[in-house]
């Protein structure tokens, strides 16, 4: 009876027909692929760059692609900025630049 039933295309079978599972253990090894989705984010305290006010997870106004192409950089004072933004500030300040947030002398975090 069962063998006969299985000749019928599966899609025709309603739940009134019994399908005997080989095992009630639906095993994880029956998982062939799990394609997951994640978003990345910078592990920073603030969400936006204090200089350009753009989101860290976005990019600075001069960049087109976020992430690797427009990285964040931390100062010794633990304040983070877009690398490109802080470089502009540091380079415009002579002889010594201060952190825009806390005014401490700017040192790149080692």
């Amino acid at each position: 009876m069962i063998y006969y039933l299985f000749d019928i295309p599966f899609s025709l079978l309603g739940n009134q027909f019994s399908l005997n599972l080989l095992s009630c253990q639906l095993l994880l090894d029956q998982l062939t692929e799990w394609h997951a989705v994640a978003s990345w984010t910078w592990d920073a305290q603030d969400e936006t760059c204090g200089i350009c006010r753009m989101a860290f997870d976005g990019c600075c106004p001069d960049c087109k692609l976020p992430g690797d192409d427009c990285p964040l950089i931390w100062g010794a004072c633990n304040h983070a900025f877009h690398l490109h933004c802080i470089l502009k500030w540091v380079n415009s300040q002579t002889p010594q630049a201060h952190c825009p947030m806390c005014r401490r002398e700017w040192q790149f975090k080692g």
Binding site: L31, E33, W34, H35, A36, V37, S39
Partner: peptide
């Protein structure tokens, strides 16, 4: 079995 799409 795991692959991921990582979005911005």
């Amino acid at each position: 079995i795991l692959n991921a799409t990582i979005i911005s």
